Simulated assay, not measured.
Amino acid sequence: MLAFLVILVILFFVWVYELNSSEKNDGGETSYKKSGSPAVDAMSDLERREALLRISRLSQEMQDKELVNSLFVENKPSLEVDDNEKKEVCAVTQVENNGAANSNSCVFDKINEIKDFVSVREIPYLVHFTQAYNIPNIISNGLLTRTALDVSGANYVYNDALRLDGVRESVSLSIGFPNYKMFYKYRCKDPSITWVMLVIDKSVLWENNCLFCKYNAADKRMTYKNKRSLGTVSALKEMYDDLDDASRSVLPLATYDPTNPQAEVLSLDKVSADKINAFIFDSKSAMDQFDFYYPGKNSFVDASFFSSREYSRKRRTA
């Protein structure tokens, strides 16, 4: 805004200078015009109008730029902001939104709502399955979006070539248990591939910009949704609603399990390596090989993550 005002002042002085110069050149040797003549007066009016038009256009361009920036700026709070500053930011935001106090009007309210919901649902972690080939790049750079991987030129293998969800700028995550139907399909394609399950800190849910999909993100019921609506706390809560073909009361679900087994979270930001708390394998040989190259990392063998969610939940309650 300050730059905009400075530019306006500069343009105003240039216009005044040009106007004064035309008057001072009356009868001068280098002047080819005479002040007071119809031609000079007409030219001055034209220059005046052009200057005003330039100022008007510049003003509109600056306003448009500020509008675009306000729409796409990342509303991420600083972790160093204290509680009083958070309250002030929320209050200002509510005033600007005519007193509206909801999860979309204040990013701090949204963070607290997500934290509260995670606590009530006892969500322990997120998971992401990938081929072991990708482990070196993940440990070095974290989990990157498909777009970021392509730009970086990193060597990696992907599971979904089509990405029908239409959000290549995201990392696909699941709450508490992997999308076992998709995971099983990929494992059947080539049984020789070694897979790893990444256990990711739940704080990603409120620290990253995420989209919450109560069905598979590639499901038409999700792809037709407005992406902004999928980034709300309401969308996260909807992952735990009863569905037309599924009632939570009759399903063998943990408190933190989304109703649909293919429900997923799309992180629009990369998942940093320090958010990966453990590496899960389905065999001791695979884990031993990992430990040889990455000693000190948390690695475990847990075949339940490589089975169906129903089987895993029934086995735990039996």
Rank of each mutant, 00 (worst) to 15 (best):
F290G: 01
I135K: 03
L253N: 06
V301C: 02
Q289R: 05
F117D: 07
S172V: 11
L236A: 13
K297S: 04
D241K: 03
S170N: 06
L5F: 13
I135W: 05
A318N: 07
I175P: 02
D160N: 15
G99N: 08
M43L: 12
D242Q: 02
W206S: 09
D219P: 00
S70I: 11
S152M: 06
S21N: 06
E207F: 02
Y32I: 09
F13G: 04
F177S: 06
F4A: 10
V171Q: 02
L58T: 07
D288F: 00
S70E: 14
L173P: 07
T317D: 14
E29W: 15
N69G: 11
V204D: 01
S229Y: 06
F108S: 10
S234Y: 14
R315L: 15
S249H: 05
E113C: 10
I135Q: 02
R228D: 14
G99H: 11
S247V: 15
E88H: 06
D160Q: 11
K181R: 07
R315W: 15
A246S: 06
D82S: 08
E207I: 03
Q131K: 05
Y215P: 14
C106Y: 07
A273M: 10
V265S: 11
S174P: 01
L211P: 07
S283F: 00
K33I: 13
P124E: 13
V120N: 10
L46Q: 11
V118S: 05
A42C: 10
S31P: 12
I114Q: 08
Y186M: 02
N97S: 08
S272T: 11
A254Y: 12
E238D: 14
V6L: 09
C106I: 06
I139C: 00
A148M: 07
A286R: 04
A263S: 00
L79N: 12
R316N: 10
L71W: 12
D109I: 14
R54A: 15
A217K: 01
A148L: 03
K181N: 05
A101K: 15
R316D: 07
K202L: 04
Q262W: 00
K237M: 15
D282V: 03
V95I: 15
K34H: 12
D83F: 11
T317S: 14
A278T: 04
K284T: 01
D116C: 05
M1T: 00
D45F: 10
F177R: 07
D244G: 05
A286H: 04
